[in-house]
Write a protein that binds this DNA or RNA. Structure first.
Lengths: 238, 238
DNA sequence: CGTACAGTTGATAGGTCTCAAGCCGCGTGG
DNA sequence: CCACGCGGCTTGAGACCTATCAACTGTACG
């Protein structure tokens, strides 16, 4: 339940709470990086408009999308603790962010109790989010992962005032797959399948959720898998 | 690299730092629970002797081992932020822990800067750990996962002064599988395979790492999979 | 209008799961 | 002390899901 709403970063209200600390705005063009692995980690960011993905590269050179950051969400909390970034943060569309220098944030946290608590909460939230992601990757099928992912996107977007049931996927099929531990072909197939089953309407990167209840059932594995090819006569009378 | 040393909780030195705050000791017998989901989350624990597993149950009723907590590691950091536990913490052997009430910890953190930083670090560490877990589940094969898991155990045990290359698995094959997103049969098969290949010596829950270099190669997918059946004559001269 | 890239779809291969049978170690009780 | 039974573990055969390889379509952009 509560483990499976997978938004990341702080809540909406957090943005306004720390508003006085914001030092400047940053713009990142589609495809450009906000920071690279190895860069000095000296600021925390909040997405104002746009979308950012953070990717990590493993020792063996494989890449994985760790998180998609939507408007209102926080990036780079780790810079309060570490000196360099481990991830690469890339803009999926032209994006503008608020920048708060991490030393300012740390200095202010000494005096302001609510801010301290907010930081703890944000970290805790991040840990929970990553744990839920691990649980998802550990035991969900491809269909369950994609259903969960779409519902999470829907929820987070609607929390920011966007339409809950019709939205644009800012990321490629490959990005989605990377985030969910799947290949792009599998993502594509399952989106098509969900479209065919009437759960979604998918046209390129436009997605409309047509049957949210059913999608939730799928996300919890309560439903036999959707038909792989066409349904056929399910079982003849012997 | 640094992403794949997967210890959880604070470092060794943390234990002593917060020693004055410790209010009492707790003992949990093998198989018993330290706390259940829904229980009030009002304390943070540090393992003194023994091993604890924390499990989460998803909305669909499936269970997953989130973390194994070895001596020196921290449990229940979330209680600084949340009022109830989401996980179940179970002892894998008779275990004794230090208990620090979370309100005491929070109160002290107001005055003691190093403690504050420690808490942030611990949270950040936890988030990183969970992220690495997600990356592992997202793209590693069963062999890579198990190699990574064994190396992580070895590293964490040796950090606490235990032997690095020969240790006892406190958890069942099923627990390992649950933690790694695999079934117990797969865990068993792969341990056997690694034994047969000379990387390990496995007898029941005793594990000895015989070829750490090779195990590291396997953990990074740099090696063609170990032979599935018996090694046979590796390759005859045609 | 053609190139390039993202996405779709098909056929096949491969890894892990499932189901099933047996083995082993250990605690219990005769 | 040994027989027994149970849970944890091993091993095998087959099915299933997802990856892989490949062809093709559509679409954005020069």
């Amino acid at each position: 339940m509560s483990h499976f709403c997978l938004p990341s970063g702080m809540h909406r209200s957090d943005i306004t709470k720390v508003a006085p600390l914001v030092r400047r705005r940053v713009r990142v063009l589609k495809g450009d990086a906000l920071f690279h692995p190895g860069d000095a980690a000296d600021a925390v960011y909040a997405v104002r408009v746009g979308t950012i993905k953070t990717c990590i590269t493993t020792a063996s050179g494989r890449n994985q999308v760790v998180t998609f950051h939507l408007p209102g969400e926080i990036i780079g909390l780790e810079s309060l603790v570490q000196v360099t970034h481990a991830c690469r943060a890339t803009a999926l569309e032209d994006t503008s962010l608020c920048l708060i220098p991490s030393d300012v944030l740390k200095a202010q946290a000494v005096h302001i109790a609510p801010l301290r608590n907010r930081l703890l909460e944000a970290f805790s939230h991040e840990a929970r989010h990553q744990r839920d992601q691990a649980v998802m990757l550990g035991q969900m099928t491809a269909e369950e992962r994609i259903a969960t992912f779409l519902l999470s996107l829907s929820e987070r977007l609607s929390a920011r005032g966007f339409a809950a049931s019709e939205f644009l996927l800012r990321m490629s099929r490959e990005d989605i797959g990377s985030h969910l531990g799947l290949k792009l072909e599998t993502v594509s197939r399952i989106l098509s399948r969900m479209g065919g089953a009437g759960l979604l309407r998918v046209r390129a990167r436009n997605v409309a959720i047509l049957d949210r209840d059913m999608l939730e059932h799928v996300s919890q594995g309560l439903r036999p898998l959707l038909p792989r090819t066409q349904p056929q006569a399910p079982r003849m009378t012997m």
